[in-house]
């Protein structure tokens, strides 16, 4: 992966040191093995330190970029690592199959699960195939269908949220994009099975919420969850997309902001250089957190699960004192 490694803007100092390491490694081939070992080791240490420092203090706009990092683990990666015997189930039984939202059956840490999530794709072909993770009505209707199935067979639902938002297209509108999203949100809220959602990358607006109306909503440390993308918000409020970094900060889209509002329940820590720097560790951490949350929900009856979900969402924003305190702290 290091050859094709993609660096974000703020990672430039890291990129420079890594380039030096590569150069020294190349030189050591001609100069004899081990010639620059000491230098390389020291530079590696420096890279580690730079990465740690950068990722410990990401601002909301930098987090937005990390959340969208092309090498960040995607739905297919989580499923491959965490779900055994995965059988993909396709189609909404009404019109089509939408590959931007994938779902199916499998076993997760010994539990039967229906797993659903957005898939952005990892190269041009797969990105087009999955429509960049931007769901169409059929994707949300498939999600509803799979949640029905989960309830029918008393199987927990695990979702992975990673979307810039639902797809804004003529066909999507024609086939009731708004209704499809609303129904998917509704299905999550009314589900008689335990449901745990994890925002693994971008939680973009209603298209994200449609898969996150869960008992517990987890979020990776550098993921974001927002009502509108910073770019789109900027173009509306500033008539200029260039104010996106400002919007990212103003809209309080980071995991660390959201947990204070009760919008997310748990932050899953990422490896020191972000989830993309150590994908296996990130995926395992998500697996552990989801398992723990899911197991805690298993004893609840369908009615208790519905009540817990209702209480969870109704409570958001209701505590005026807590909000006032948060607001003060943010300023």
């Amino acid at each position: 992966m290091s050859a094709a490694r993609q660096y974000l803007e703020f990672e430039r100092p890291i990129a420079e040191v890594e380039a030096k390491i590569e150069e020294l490694s190349r030189l050591s081939e001609s100069a004899g093995p081990g010639a620059f070992d000491a230098e390389i080791a020291s530079l590696r240490g420096k890279v580690e330190q730079l990465r740690r420092e950068a990722y410990a203090h990401l601002d909301p706009w930098q987090k937005t970029q990390v959340a969208r990092h092309p090498e960040r683990p995607h739905f297919v990666d989580y499923v491959a690592e965490l779900v055994e015997d995965f059988v993909e189930l396709r189609g909404d039984r009404k019109f089509a199959d939408d590959a931007s939202i994938i779902g199916g059956l499998g076993r997760f840490r010994g539990l039967p699960v229906v797993v659903i999530g957005h898939e952005k794709g990892h190269d041009t072909t797969t990105r087009l195939q999955h429509n960049f993770g931007m769901g169409r009505p059929e994707g949300y209707r498939k999600a509803v269908r799979l949640m029905d199935l989960a309830e029918q067979f008393a199987i927990p639902v695990v979702t992975f949220v990673d979307t810039a938002g639902a797809y804004p297209g003529v066909g999507a509108e024609e086939r009731g994009q708004g209704e499809a999203i609303a129904r998917s949100t509704e299905r999550g809220l009314t589900l008689g099975s335990p449901m745990v959602a994890t925002i693994t990358g971008e939680g973009g607006s209603g298209g994200a919420l449609a898969l996150a109306a869960a008992n517990k909503v987890l979020i990776l440390e550098h993921s974001i969850y927002s009502v509108i993308s910073p770019e789109a918000g900027s173009s509306i409020l500033f008539r200029d997309r260039a104010q996106a970094p400002h919007m990212a900060a103003a809209m309080k889209i980071t995991a660390q902001d959201l947990i204070g509002f009760g919008i997310v329940d748990r932050i899953v820590p990422e490896p020191p250089g972000g989830a993309h720097s150590d994908r296996a560790a990130a995926i395992a951490a998500v697996g552990d957190a989801v398992e723990e949350e899911l197991r805690a929900l298993l004893p609840l009856t369908p009615d208790e699960l519905r009540r817990q979900r209702a209480e969870r969402f109704y409570a958001i924003g209701r505590s005026g004192a807590a909000l006032a305190q948060l607001k003060k702290a943010k300023r």
Partner: peptide
């Protein structure tokens, strides 16, 4: 921000 997004779920409830 996301507090407005949450109203979609809350009204649905």
């Amino acid at each position: 921000g996301a507090l407005s997004l949450m109203q979609m779920a809350r009204t649905t409830l």
